[in-house]
Amino acid sequence: MATLSQTRPVRRPRRVTPGAAKWLPVLLLPVTVGLVLVYFSAVYGLALGFTDWNLISDPAWVGTANFAEILDDERFWTALRNTVEIVAVTVPAKVAIGLGLAILLSRVARLSSFFRLALFFPTSCSVVAVAFLWVYLYDPNGLLNSWLGALGLGTVKWMSPDHALTSVNVMIIWGGVGYVALLFLAGLQSIPAEYYEASRLDGASAWRQFWSITFPLLTPTTFFVVVTGIIAALQTFGEVFILAGPMDSTLTIMSYIYERAFTGFEMGYSAALSAFLILILLTATGAQLWFQRKWVTYER
């Protein structure tokens, strides 16, 4: 960058600004503290994973014992299975329903801003407050069952071990779909109308238009939704902290880390669990960045 300004013949490069040098360390201090905190935490957290520490006695080095224990830990595998199921169900569902709603939103003129506002509303809400709404809806004697009963359909044990995770997934999709729809709507509105007009002249059906124009040109949005959605879903915590099913049926990796770290105060073991989750997060994100060239279409 220095060469850039020096090659400009018109003005001579400015001398050192006397005031700025003095202030620079102060101005950069907060950001630098944040940086050090993140990188130190990464190293320190990994190191903690090799210790046994209950916060009271000194940390004891135990080598790879924690990691070996995790591989034999039935509850870790349950948490991993549940978390993967949340990712596998909620992310595709949010994409499919969100895209469908976005297409409908792009076609309506009247009430359009009301629809958008209403669908987007849960995004601003506290997960805890929203999850309590669903605790109420899913209660065995709650609203959903009384309606099903009134329709003569019998009742569902929404939060039984068999159904709890599905019920949680429904809530997550419900809360996230409006945000995804708005992202897709912005993508749709940036597709030039000429593409549709030209293809219509060539006799393309609406179905063909969707797969040949809409879907390819929306792949950058889809990619963004999928990447951020997977990262968020892998760290699901608040939803299952409130709307918790019996017998670990909704245990996620994050809620398992929370339980071991902050109710059991097993800092070493939970740091090792965190290391596993971070590895999964980085692998998932890296894999998607790698595979995006196979399916994401960027204009120009």
Binding site: Y44, G45, Q235, A261, S270, A271, S274, L277
Partner: peptide, 13 residues
């Protein structure tokens, strides 16, 4: 790119 999970336990200590 660093997930917030990285700082959870170290920051607490």
């Amino acid at each position: 790119l660093v997930p917030s999970t990285v700082t959870l336990i170290p920051l607490y200590t």
